[in-house]
Design a protein around this nucleic acid. Structure first.
Lengths: 154, 154
DNA sequence: TCCTTGTTAGGATTGATTCCTATATAGCAC
DNA sequence: GTGCTATATAGGAATCAATCCTAACAAGGA
């Protein structure tokens, strides 16, 4: 969803982050989509407002936002990194056909825990569930019937 | 676990794969560990028996084995790809300190399904659960107290 | 307004992975 | 076994997302 300048300023302040026009644009772009864009996608988008912004700044900013907990990074199926400004607990539906990622909210999944004997005292801090399959578009296109080539497409 | 030559030959045959000494060594190495090695780890290991084997062959072979369903690829936290010859249903414990990956077998987790309204007819073919936290070694080292730098270590 | 520290742009670099291609070999038919 | 064909291998070149380096710049506090 779209954030007011004040709302955004507060979120940055709370975490001790400096606010710059570039950062605002990157975070706003990410908060305004549900499509889990790549760094490159974001750079392309933000460049409309900031023609001189470098990819480097996008990478650096995403790193800062990630460490501050303002964005999450997902990286399923060895695609390049994708980012998500939705930091409420949720899970993902990953399409094996077009590699799109949809959010999935499901409280039962949020409550999972390791029932078994934890081997050697592993201390769990969180979890996430990823369902994979084929989105409606890929189903209609029959893409769930064909096997992708074993060579990767970049 | 260690495979007999016949067992391995059968698995390859069933899937229409040619058997070569290099492939046997790579698959044997992967089947003989629980450590989810990288392609480079496997190359280093296999090179003891096959000094001339190229990284390329390891990548190519892992791609073939992956498409044949003989190995799984996991790639959490934007580390490089890691491989797993355990293709029975299981989940993973990912250490945020040292990035090690442990298998987790838990039938309750295998039976998860999407309870909510599936947005737009997504057809689920599988799922996996990833718990993250800190392994016992990293806990003892106090690594769960410090925050990793936001810059990535390769 | 000044200062300090973190941020930006841009260019160079890294490094896992893939591409290209000539040679070698597995598996099949005879 | 011998020969044939399709596929695998080795090695070198190329790709490209991501990171490193650095000089100029600007946000936020004093």
């Amino acid at each position: 969803m779209r954030l007011t300048p004040d709302e955004m300023r507060m979120r940055f302040r709370e975490r001790g982050l400096k606010m710059t026009p570039q950062r605002a644009a990157i975070y706003q772009a990410l908060a305004g989509t549900v499509s889990h864009p790549t760094a490159e996608d974001l750079h392309r988008h933000v460049r409309r407002q900031h023609p001189m912004i470098s990819p480097n700044t996008v990478y650096y900013t995403l790193g800062v936002l990630r460490e501050a907990g303002l964005v999450h990074e997902v990286n399923y199926w060895h695609d390049r990194s994708r980012f998500d400004a939705n930091i409420t607990p949720h899970h993902h539906l990953v399409c094996l056909g077009c590699r799109s990622i949809q959010d999935l909210t499901d409280e039962a999944l949020d409550r999972l825990s390791v029932s078994g004997r934890l081997k050697g005292g592993f201390e769990v801090t969180g979890h996430r569930v990823e369902f994979h399959g084929y989105c409606s578009t890929c189903c209609r296109a029959g893409r769930h019937l064909s096997r992708p080539d074993h060579r990767r497409h970049r």
